[in-house]
Simulated assay, not measured.
Amino acid sequence: MTSLLRISTLITTLSFSGLAVATDVVHFEGKASNTLPEAVANFSEYNDKLEAVMEGELTPEAMSEVHQLSYTLENAIAKMSKELDSLAETLEEVHLASESADTETVSEQGAAYLETSRELVE
């Protein structure tokens, strides 16, 4: 009976200590991506950093680094996603204007589309 009580106490202690570790996660802001070029640069740089960490052993230290890197990557992806949604709307304006031979809209919105799209590729 004493052994059963000790095992039960040990299991309870380990359960609560595991819970403490799981809830003590530190959150970071990550590097900001305020513009599309900044987001693209951060995305590229931090993907390289993530790849380098993942090429090694995924130790607790490496996992912490992955955790920190993910914040900047999430910021970059969020900005790129927002910009790509807007870019798709601009391209749709170009598309519709081309169907109706609206040269003014194609010229204006086409230029806006190309300016933004070129920020994605270098």
Rank of each mutant, 00 (worst) to 15 (best):
L84E: 05
L84R: 05
F28R: 09
L19A: 14
L36I: 10
S117A: 15
S81Q: 11
T13S: 13
D102F: 10
E74W: 14
V66K: 01
L120G: 11
E29R: 14
D85W: 01
H27W: 08
A101I: 01
L36R: 03
E83C: 08
L14F: 02
T23R: 15
D102Q: 03
L120K: 04
L114C: 08
S64H: 06
S117N: 12
S98R: 12
E61P: 13
K31T: 07
M63Y: 01
A32M: 11
E99D: 10
L10W: 00
S33M: 13
E119S: 14
Y113G: 01
E65D: 08
T59F: 07
V66R: 00
I77M: 15
L114T: 01
A97I: 00
N47A: 12
T23C: 15
L14P: 02
L96R: 03
V106R: 09
A88T: 04
E93T: 03
M54F: 02
S86T: 03
T105G: 11
T13R: 04
G30A: 15
I7A: 14
A101T: 02
D48Q: 12
H27Q: 11
L58P: 00
A97T: 00
E65S: 11
D24V: 10
T103C: 10
L10H: 00
D24W: 12
L87D: 00
V25C: 15
D102V: 00
E55D: 11
A52T: 04
E89Q: 05
G30M: 13
A111W: 02
T105Q: 04
E115V: 08
S33L: 13
T12E: 03
V40K: 07
E92W: 01
E61W: 01
N34F: 13
K82M: 11
E115P: 06
V21S: 03
E99N: 08
K31C: 12
S107I: 00
D102I: 00
S33Y: 11
L69I: 14
Q109N: 09
N75F: 15
E104Y: 07
E122T: 14
T90H: 05
T12C: 14
Y46H: 14
V66I: 05
T116L: 12
K82D: 11
V53K: 02
A20K: 04
V21F: 05
S98K: 12
G18C: 08
E89R: 05
P37A: 06
E115S: 15
T105N: 09
E89F: 07
T9N: 10
E104L: 04
L50I: 02
E83F: 07
I77Q: 14
E29P: 12
S100A: 07
T2C: 07
D24Q: 13
V40Y: 09
V21W: 00
V25E: 14
V121D: 07
V53F: 01
Y46P: 02
G18N: 09
E119V: 03
G110D: 04
T13W: 01
T9E: 06
M80T: 01
L84Y: 04
T72G: 14
F28M: 10
S117F: 13
M54K: 10
R6V: 09
V26N: 13
P37L: 08
D48C: 02
L91G: 05
S17Y: 01
L5E: 06
M1L: 04
Y71G: 15
A101F: 08
T9W: 00
T103V: 06
A22K: 08
